[in-house]
Amino acid sequence: MDTAERLDLVTRHTEEVVTEDELETLLEGDDPSAYIGYAPTGEMHIGHFTTMRKLADFLQAGVDVTVLIADLHAHLDDEKSPFDLLDARSEYYRVAIEGMIDAAGADPDDVEFVRGTDFQLDEDYTLEMYRMAAETTIARTQRAASEVVRESESPNLGGLIYPLMQTLDVDALDADIAYGGVDQRGIYMLSREILPDHGGEAPVCLFAPLLSGLTGGKMSASDESSKVNLTDDRDAVVEKIQEAYCPMGEVEDNGVLEYLDHLVFPVLEQRGETFVVERPEEYGGDLTYEDYESLEADFVSEELHPADLKPAAGECISEVIDPVRERLADREDLLAEAYPEKYGDE
């Protein structure tokens, strides 16, 4: 695979690359490395899956991948995960992420998993964090973390430490590429700005798009109807997609189309399969799509009606998440330990 092919693979389904010239130079060399960090807070859902699927592209392009289970970050962000739940939630995230990587057609064994507590308590890391804290203003760190960390008029100190630690993680994990949702942009721009003064190099940054919720607009972790959970059974998935915001001919804020674009079609491509919309003969018969662009064109032209698209999308999305769902179903004990308020009584 030449550099152009690697670049196309690494950058597809991203919102922004900072910078593409730097990334191209990096891919011309040997053994580039990327990392993504996840703080183990709430349950993982289809939005996480669309981001994690990208790791299969990295691996195919010959990029070494590290997944950081950022357990300390989970507590620093307004105590979203109590200390006594960090071990269970960290293990749950690992199991779920391994399932997503497998479902995307890659081998989870090719990915290195690291927990924040494996290195973030080391003396050298801690000393550098203190140095960084002494040189970075509160206003700068708040601005960097504004899209990630829960904010208030009187924020906890942990939320200010969070972006500094995330910056140090890039160097500690020896990552050439920092990958995450576009909400992470502020933090990684801070990393590019200050890391060279603290013994590291400015990372190349790749940002995944934040997908719309099924109810239109931004996906909400607290609104069950706005997302598909990885533990949702087939009937729940189909019902959520059936009720989803998907107005005729409209692409903007259409979560159904976004999931098809960024998750379903890449997985089908990996499997060598097509997307089939079943329709009665009186309405034109079945439609078969080999790529998302053709489907979107038919949807915009109103050749493809939401009433026909939704059932097919629901079934296919359920099938895509099925391997992840099965892994988690086999670990009911882990779910109960990680989220006792939801699964503890089952």
Rank of each mutant, 00 (worst) to 15 (best):
L164P: 01
L164S: 01
L164W: 01
Q166E: 03
T167I: 02
L168T: 01
L168H: 02
L168V: 02
D169L: 05
V170K: 01
V170L: 09
V170C: 07
V170W: 04
D171I: 05
D171C: 06
A172F: 09
A172W: 09
L173K: 13
L173M: 15
L173D: 09
D174K: 15
D174N: 11
A175V: 10
A175N: 07
A175L: 12
A175C: 13
I177G: 06
I177P: 04
I177Q: 03
I177F: 02
A178Q: 09
A178E: 07
Y179P: 15
Y179E: 10
Y179F: 09
G180E: 07
G181F: 03
G181A: 09
V182R: 00
V182C: 03
D183W: 01
Q184E: 08
Q184T: 07
Q184L: 03
Q184C: 04
Q184G: 05
G186L: 03
G186T: 08
G186P: 07
I187F: 03
Y188I: 10
M189W: 11
M189A: 13
L190V: 02
L190F: 05
S191I: 07
S191M: 13
S191L: 11
S191A: 15
R192Q: 14
R192E: 13
E193T: 08
E193Y: 04
I194A: 02
L195V: 06
L195E: 03
L195P: 01
L195I: 08
L195W: 02
L195H: 02
P196R: 04
P196N: 07
P196W: 00
D197R: 14
D197G: 13
D197A: 14
D197L: 11
H198D: 14
G199V: 12
G199E: 15
G200Q: 04
G200P: 02
G200D: 06
G200L: 05
E201S: 12
A202L: 12
A202R: 11
A202Q: 14
A202P: 09
P203R: 08
P203N: 10
V204A: 04
C205V: 13
L206P: 05
L206I: 14
L206C: 10
F207K: 05
